[in-house]
Design a protein around this nucleic acid. Structure first.
Length: 489
RNA sequence: GGUAUCGUGGCCGAGUGGCUAGGCAGAGCUCUGCAAAAGCUCCUACAGCAGUUCGAAUCUGCUCGAUACCUCCA
């Protein structure tokens, strides 16, 4: 089916490599999921939509993919300082709620957003709180292997010791000496031996709500441990793909690799995939900068930077128009362009079943398919794939207008290709209100009346009907074979 | 300050040594009672300077500008 091999850019090697699963046809893919202490914003959504497309495409290619995406519900520290408050419990105190109530609410919110964006659920969605035992076991093992030390009820990873034997900076490509010598803000770190050391287990303060017993006293797991523990548990000590946002590279993923090597003597993933940031006016969209959009604000248009609302599929299409490793800037104009482009694509999709077939094809479907697969095989290049999809749109419209022709066999191939790419791989979906039978019947009556008016050259009446229907949200198009309508917003 | 990445036409955004990206917007045409839709045509750009090369938006160097990471963040 494909003419070229799938190539993926690997952050670890900084190169685009041919993808070879460790145990084909099985593929293990781990993606760092959200921390559920507030609403998921569009930047988060972009990452998960990007990985959704990868998941879909790998599956489409015939791989049996186990896609693991965690939910971080154990609460990480607020800052490097030990006084830092657990994010989940802080919000809980603010809102007078139980931490798990917060977690429950925002997990639900996250799932709802993912559903609206038409992302497929992961194969396994493990939570940090359900894997405390695994995290404690991993901490014990790292301690036993000599890469961690206990200090006043907490356990820290010894980065300097680790770095003497292994590359700590392989993923981030940073200079270790500089990291070590960057002594800015060394406050209140008496418990830690080294500046870069990070917590595997953190002793709970009396007021800390989320806590579990451990060999080192009551506490909670460190920032990076859950992903190491859960990826090992569900995908093995070595698996194919590990992904997440680019901002996770220097700290979270770097430490994750160190933990895995210190525990299992193996680097967890062969290929590391990182998605780029969504920006607003050139600045990274983030919770802490306060410039983030919530999906609902985008859908409703209820945001100071927006002129109007945009549907989830418009936004998904918009995101697919940029490559996942490029930053993508949010603006009204760009979203409006995406809205129209997406509508044109969907319109063409609807025309396919009714295309008239001929004895000969004047269009080249095989070439089209080849181009699309080449684009996707080139590090999931969805913008190029979409460009070819729009060649298909022109092709379909021309056939529909009788300017090009297609054989029954080619039409079958085109239909299969388009459906698989647009709906299956890119995960787009028709989202306009479905024209139901009752409305169809009603509209047929109106069309009949309008046709009668037109036959009598009573264009005043026919135009009035068309204009009023448009105001009511029904757009009328007069075609050769009668009128048709689409429901607009 | 350190380390990276990036700077493409009105907007968004691919590409990356020679060949049209694509979407949206704009102009013209065809079709049409008029619209809409669709098709065709046009608008042909790569921050600046210098260099390598037969040839550079694409490689190298410098300059300017922007962003990210170094601190929780997808």
């Amino acid at each position: 089916m494909t003419h070229t091999a799938l190539k993926i850019y690997n952050t670890l090697s900084r190169q685009t490599e041919t993808f070879k699963p460790i145990h084909a046809p099985f593929v293990g893919m781990y993606v760092c999921g959200p921390t559920v202490y507030s609403n998921a914003h569009l930047g988060n959504a972009r990452t998960f939509i990007s990985f959704d497309v990868m998941f879909r495409y790998l599956t489409h290619l015939g791989y049996k993919v186990r896609y693991v995406r965690n939910i971080t519900d154990a609460g990480h520290l607020e800052s490097d300082a030990d006084e830092g408050e657990d994010k989940v419990s802080k919000k809980a105190r603010l809102e007078q709620l139980e931490p798990m109530e917060i977690v429950q609410r925002y997990t639900y919110d996250f799932h709802e957003v993912m559903r609206l964006f038409n992302t497929l659920p992961p194969s396994i969605e493990p939570t940090a709180t359900a894997h405390i035992i695994e995290q404690i076991e991993m901490t014990k093992k790292i301690l036993a292997n000599g890469y961690a030390y206990e200090s006043n009820g907490s356990v820290y990873f010894d980065v300097e010791k680790f770095a003497k034997e292994f590359s700590y900076t392989a993923l981030s490509n940073r200079n270790l000496e500089e990291l070590l010598n960057n002594t800015r803000e060394l406050d209140g770190q008496e418990e830690k031996k080294g500046r870069l050391d990070f917590a595997l287990w953190i002793k709970a303060k009396p007021e800390h709500i989320m806590r579990w017993p451990s060999p080192w006293g009551e506490g909670f797991p460190g920032w990076h441990l859950e992903c190491s523990a859960m990826s090992s548990k569900y995908l093995g000590e070595e698996f194919d793909i590990h992904g997440g946002g680019m901002d996770l590279v220097p700290t979270h993923h770097t430490n994750e690799i160190a933990q895995n090597i210190a525990c299992h003597h193996k680097s967890p993933a062969r290929v590391w995939i990182h998605t780029n940031m969504l920006t607003v006016n050139g600045q990274k969209m983030s919770k802490s900068l306060g410039n983030s959009f919530l999906p609902n604000e985008l859908f409703s248009g209820n945001h100071k930077l927006l002129d109007k609302g945009y549907s989830p599929m418009t936004v998904r299409f918009f995101m697919l128009q940029a490559h996942y490793r490029s930053t993508l800037d949010f603006s009204n104009e760009a979203l409006q362009a995406a809205e129209k482009g997406f509508a044109r694509l969907m319109n063409a999709m609807k025309l396919i079943p009714d295309l008239k077939v001929s004895k000969q094809s004047t269009v080249n479907c095989a070439e089209l398919g080849k181009n699309m697969y080449e684009a996707m095989n080139d590090d999931f290049n969805t913008p190029i794939a979409l460009a070819h999809l729009f060649e298909a749109v022109r092709m379909i419209n021309s056939i529909n207008d009788g300017k090009e022709s297609i054989t029954a066999a080619d039409k079958e191939e085109l239909s299969k290709l388009m459906n698989e790419m647009v709906f299956g791989v890119l995960g787009l979906a028709e989202e306009k209100a479905v024209n139901n039978d009752k409305i169809d019947g009603l509209m047929q009556l109106i069309f009949d009346m309008r046709s009668a008016a037109k036959a009598n050259k009573d264009f005043k009446t026919s135009d009035h009907i068309r204009d009023e229907l448009k105001r009511a949200g029904f757009e009328i198009k007069d075609g050769k074979d009668g009128a048709s309508y689409t429901i607009t917003n």
